[in-house]
């Protein structure tokens, strides 16, 4: 049992290290001047690799029940929906628009629509409707921020309340249960080794978004907009489309995240996604995507998701309640952003 358990942990950290390598290569700028990096910059750039590895190691060594196949599968099950939301939201953060608070409403809506509508008609109908709603979210948020130049935090705060209000009003706040067998249920329960199918979906989406960010004109313009929006606009770029695109990707990620969440629990209720906004943000920032915009990587967000999920899991296993978990994630956000801000100052930017 013990030997098997420790073997499990090494595979996880190895996988994490491999993803990390990939992320670094994608995010590195070949033109950057070679110079001695400040210690804070090192921490902001590479810290996440060491912290994640250290956290997984500590958890495997000192936390009872962490390094069991059952627990690790459970961590993956819980990490997948937040991860899919986070990789999508990474685009909004890179565009220097802080975050998309409305993912809470979007995830819940997608979950309720998937289970509720597929119970009454069929699954393609449910997925189609949910994607239409995602399109609406992306366009409303994106136009308000990109065209009207409104503050993204306030805009998405208001769309969260509008969206959750509409969802509760339409669903009557009731809980929807999926059928005990069928495609949704089998998607949610299929596991390949320790990896649930949802985790594989997350990795595939992350790799796709990684290419979108690093190999396409859109990704290039997004980073450019995030680091200097006026210069990008003056270069003749239609910046509104870039912002709408970022919010559309976030909406798409939240919707797929909602599907995965609903499939895993086979239930859907409007309150099921509370806290997704902050956990996703924590994963993004801890991963090293800068809240100042312009700099970030999807694969690093993946690593951030591992970090946040393992941290939450450690707290749950140690019997620390909801309050402690919230405090930890809040402190994590504040600490990661502080390191980023101080590193920037040290670099003289």
């Amino acid at each position: 049992m013990t030997s098997e358990a420790s073997g499990e942990a090494t595979t996880t950290s190895e996988a994490a290290a491999r993803t990390a390598d990939l992320g670094d290569r994608g995010g590195a700028d070949p033109d950057i001047k070679r110079r001695k990096l400040h210690v804070l910059e090192q921490m902001a750039n590479r810290g996440i690799f060491f912290f994640t590895a250290a956290l997984v190691l500590i958890a495997a060594l000192f936390i009872d029940g962490f390094a069991s196949l059952e627990n690790i599968t459970d961590v993956f099950h819980r990490a997948a929906p937040i991860g899919i939301v986070a990789v999508g939201m990474t685009f909004v953060v890179i565009s220097a628009n802080y975050l998309d608070l409305s993912v809470v409403a979007q995830v819940a809506t997608a979950a309720v629509v998937l289970i509720g509508v597929s119970n009454n008609s069929n699954i393609p109908m449910a997925i189609g409707l949910a994607l239409l709603i995602a399109l609406a979210y992306g366009i409303v948020n994106g136009v308000a921020v990109g065209v009207f130049k409104a503050n993204a935090v306030i805009v998405t705060l208001s769309t969260t309340f509008i969206g959750l209000g509409l969802l509760r009003w339409a669903s009557g706040g009731s809980i929807y249960f999926g059928p005990s067998d069928g495609p949704i249920r089998s998607f949610g329960t299929t596991e390949i080794g320790p990896f649930p199918l949802s985790m594989i979906v997350l990795v595939v989406i992350a790799i796709g978004l990684h290419f979108l960010l690093n190999r396409t004109t859109f990704g290039f313009l997004l980073k450019s907009y995030g680091s200097n929006r006026n210069a990008t606009r003056l270069a003749g770029v239609n910046t509104a489309l870039v912002v709408v695109g970022a919010f559309l990707i976030s909406a798409l990620g939240s919707t797929i995240g909602g599907f995965v969440l609903a499939a895993f629990s086979n239930t859907a209720v409007s309150a099921m996604s509370s806290g997704f906004d902050f956990e996703a943000l924590a994963a993004i920032i801890v991963g090293g995507t800068s809240v100042f915009g312009g700099k970030g990587s999807v694969l690093r967000t993946l690593l951030g998701v591992v970090f946040v999920s393992v941290l939450t899991n450690i707290m749950v296993l140690s019997g620390l309640g909801f309050g402690y978990q919230q405090m930890a994630i809040g402190a994590l956000i504040a600490a990661a952003v502080s390191v980023d801000a101080l590193a920037r100052r040290a670099a003289g930017k």
């Binding site: 935090v153 902050f278 402690y324 402190a331 956000i333 504040a334 952003v337």
Partner: peptide, 19 residues
């Protein structure tokens, strides 16, 4: 520290709710 107030107070919002 020099963090944007939106993000700084967002972190605090979460931290304090936990507290």
């Amino acid at each position: 520290v020099g963090i944007n107030s939106f993000i700084a107070t967002l972190g605090m919002l979460f931290l304090l709710r936990g507290l």
